[in-house]
């Protein structure tokens, strides 16, 4: 038992290390074409801000949206966007798995002594994806400057934990989506509904949406734990479903459960691929 856990841990650490050096190689090769990289990084950073400009335009017409001020919505936007950006930075190329299955290049990953998950995740690692994290972070900082929150140690910890577990939950959605493609190779777009759709949803206050939808992202696809529930606690607001208070603190636990599920789905998918080879 102990031996099995130690072996798992060793494989995991080796996967992380391998991810590091594969991604590092991609970064180095991108930086070799510095101008190209700089144009892209700046362009991406600037255009991601357009997304938030949309929300600012909304607030040029109204004082509050669903009872939330611009600064509060910015807090939701910043946390959602940063968490999503982190997942996108590290696991954003996962939707290519269907292509890899179709053109057979997945086979070449299976004959190397590195976990396939790490190889797929690190493939084409693009530093320009930092643009989204930077944008999310900037909006978050801006909102913190305008919000009137009393920053206790608990709230600081809660916010930090929210960003990390939010990134992990989104990352699990990427892995789950990738695993799903082992069965339905052309269905990569379904993933967008949960990743891009998810981050868009979480940028707005939950009070805007139908209760069934909110219930769905709490109990079915646990995206509400990315920021909604903990962020409402930080902002000192009630959640529209009236859930018990401890739920707001459950994000790290939910993230761990998601990891287990995503890992399981990935293993299942890879096993299915290795028995059908299609």
């Amino acid at each position: 038992m102990v031996e099995a856990i130690r072996r798992r841990a060793a494989v995991f650490l080796w996967g992380v290390r391998a991810y590091g050096f594969i991604a590092g190689m991609w970064v180095r090769s991108t930086l070799a074409y510095r101008t190209s990289f700089l144009i892209m990084a700046t362009g991406n950073l600037l255009t991601t801000f357009l997304d938030f400009v949309g929300i600012m335009i909304m607030f040029s017409h109204v004082e509050t949206l669903g009872g939330f001020t611009l600064a509060e919505v910015a807090f939701l936007y910043g946390t959602s966007s940063t968490a999503f950006g982190l997942a996108d930075l590290f696991l954003g190329t996962f939707d290519r798995i269907g292509t890899r299955i179709r053109d057979g290049t997945l086979d070449t990953l299976l004959v190397r002594p590195v976990p396939v998950l790490a190889q797929v995740a690190a493939d084409r690692f693009a530093l320009r994806r930092l643009g989204r994290v930077a944008q999310g972070g900037a909006v978050l900082v801006w909102s913190l400057l305008r919000l009137d929150i009393e920053w206790t140690a608990g709230r600081v910890l809660l916010t930090a934990a929210m960003l990390v577990s939010g990134g992990v939950i989104f990352g699990c959605v990427f892995v789950l989506g990738g695993a799903f493609q082992f069965w339905a190779q052309d269905a990569s777009e379904v993933q967008n509904a949960f990743t891009y759709g998810g981050t868009t949803l979480l940028q707005y206050p939950p009070t805007l949406f139908a209760r069934e939808l909110v219930r769905g992202v709490v109990f079915v696809v646990p995206l509400a734990f990315v920021n909604w529930l903990p962020a409402l606690r930080v902002l000192g607001r009630e959640d529209p479903l009236g859930l018990p208070g401890w739920v707001d603190l459950a994000s790290p636990a939910v993230a761990l459960v998601c990891c287990a599920l995503a890992g399981l789905a990935w293993r299942r998918g890879l096993r299915a691929y290795r028995s059908t080879g299609s």
């Binding site: 090769s29 053109d103 057979g104 086979d107 070449t108």
Partner: peptide
């Protein structure tokens, strides 16, 4: 693999 390369398409060979 013959038809498919195990190398990284966009990286220089040495990398």
């Amino acid at each position: 693999f013959g038809q498919r390369t195990t190398l990284w398409w966009d990286l220089p060979l040495r990398d």
